[in-house]
Each structure stands twice: as structure tokens, then as C-alpha cells.
């Protein structure tokens, strides 16, 4: 089976954000594989181990994203592709990303493409479904269970807390929701092996993409931190008096009940 995983390098969830000159400061920050993409990688490896084939992880961005690709290779992916957009694309949005990924994938005949259902930085959740639409294949988002039998695919997906069970077929793109699996940690032999696995680096030229083709459709004009909240009140006195006071405050001061 020909399996591809779309991966994004993101800020570690532990990171506090600092903004200067209107940009989020990346210096000294820790980066990780987007947590939802880790579920996608784990599932891809599991499917390959059960059905055979090859797992290729793809990301876009600069050289530094190589680190996250090596981690995916250490988990067990077979090959990695970095589409280096650093020099060619000034401003990207989800249209841009999906276009580039689809151009790469269009002659690869993927059976299964996996991605995280959302990236924890931009949070749009668009790129997976957009890629599927550009490739003309079906997609299912926020999946929590995946079973493949021949070309028949049985899926459970999370829809706002409820579980939807459905049937579809390959080729298919799915996006991973929490609960799909427990991503493995790279083992030491895995890390050693990953150093020798193929990691291909491409630029837009290699995909015959012109900068104008991928010009962003939207524009970010400002990034800012939410206003700091004033310190709250920790109530005092005996517990039942505190509870009575709290209910009064919620009704009369905050007026939310």
C-alpha cells in the first residue's frame, strides 16, 4: 500500500508565546511534530505493518523541518520529503499549502493519505480536505478508528463528542483525532536507522509550480496576545459562606447565571 502522511512542524505546546515586531518569536523555542500528525504517523505505520507497502512523510517549510521528518523516520516511516518553500513563497495560507502538496502527490497514486485533523498553531484544519479535493479523492476527518479490508475502509469518527461509524473505500485521505492510537516513541535503533533513510528535498521549481500559482488568498495583518486578565478573587471564610458568596457573585456581579 502506498501511504503518505502530511506533517507539520509546530511550536511545542509548553511554549509561551512572545510577539515582537508583529511576529511570534521563534528564537530558542522548542519545536515538535504537530501532536495530531503524530497520530497520523502512528496509524500509517500500523497500516503498513498489517498490509505491507511504504510510508512517506511529507512536510513543507525550511531546512529546520528536517528534524521533525527524522523523528517520523525514527518512529518507523520509510521515506521523507521536504518541500522547501523558504526562498520561494513569502506568504502562505491554506490554499498555498494544499496546492503545493497536491502538486507533489498528483502523480504518486497514493492509496491512503493521513494528516492531523488540525495543527495546534494555525488551527484551521483545512489542508487535508483541500488536498483530497484537489486530488479528486474522498476524505474523512477526525477519525478515531480505521480498519482496512481490501479496498473497503471502515471508520469511526468523532463528531462533536458523538461517534459516527461509516464505510468508504480507497483511495482515501483521513485526518486523525485524539484517541485514534497511542503514538510510539522513537527507539534508539529506530533513531540510528532513520539517519540512513532517504530524505528528499524539493523546491517549487522541481514541481513546476510558479510563485503566482500559489499566492495566498488571505492576508494576516496583525498578530497579538490576548489582554492580560486582572487577578481574580480567591474567596475567604468558611466553605459554605464561600459557596453562597460565589453563587451571588455569578448572578449579580458577573451576571452569567
Amino acid at each position: 500500500m502506498n501511504i503518505y502522511v502530511l506533517v507539520k512542524r509546530t511550536f511545542d505546546t509548553e511554549e509561551k508565546l512572545v510577539i515582537s515586531n508583529g511576529q511570534i518569536q521563534e528564537d530558542g523555542a522548542e519545536f515538535i511534530i504537530n501532536p495530531y500528525d503524530e497520530y497520523a504517523i502512528e496509524e500509517a505505520i500500523t497500516v503498513r505493518d498489517a498490509h505491507g507497502g511504504e510510508v512517506t512523510v511529507i512536510t513543507m517549510g525550511g531546512e529546520e523541518a528536517e528534524k521533525q521528518l527524522r523523528t517520523a523516520l525514527a518512529m518507523g516511516a520509510d521515506k521523507a520529503v521536504l518541500i522547501n518553500t523558504e526562498d520561494d513563497v513569502e506568504e502562505m495560507d491554506q490554499f498555498t499549502s494544499a496546492y503545493i502538496l497536491a502538486e507533489y502527490l498528483k502523480d504518486k497514486n497514493p492509496d491512503l493519505i493521513l494528516a492531523g485533523n488540525v495543527a495546534i498553531d494555525g488551527g484551521s484544519g483545512q489542508v487535508g480536505p483541500r488536498v483530497a479535493d484537489l486530488l479528486g479523492i474522498n476524505y474523512v476527518t477526525t477519525i478515531t478508528d480505521l480498519k482496512i479490508d481490501g479496498t473497503t475502509v471502515t471508520i469511526t469518527r468523532d463528531i462533536e463528542g458523538d461517534a459516527e461509524e461509516l464505510e468508504t473505500s480507497l483511495p482515501l485521505l483521513v485526518t486523525a483525532q485524539q484517541g485514534l492510537n497511542e503514538p510510539r516513541y522513537p527507539s534508539l535503533p529506530g533513531i540510528m536507522k532513520a539517519k540512513k533513510k532517504p530524505l528528499e528535498e524539493l523546491e517549487l521549481d522541481d514541481l513546476d509550480i510558479e510563485e503566482d500559482d500559489v499566492e495566498a488568498k488571505t492576508e494576516t495583518i496583525e498578530i497579538y496576545l490576548p489582554p492580560k486578565k486582572a487577578a481574580g478573587r480567591v474567596l475567604q471564610g468558611d466553605l459554605s459562606a464561600q459557596v453562597t458568596e460565589l453563587v451571588g457573585l455569578l448572578r449579580n456581579e458577573a451576571k452569567v447565571i
Binding site: 510577539i19 488571505t218 492576508e219
Partner: peptide, 11 residues
């Protein structure tokens, strides 16, 4: 963005 750690204005 960043799950509410920051906001962006987009047009």
C-alpha cells in the same frame, strides 16, 4: 491561533 494563546487579524 495557538489554541487561543494568541490572536490574528486576517482579511
Amino acid at each position: 491561533i495557538y489554541s487561543g494563546k494568541a490572536f490574528e487579524k486576517v482579511k
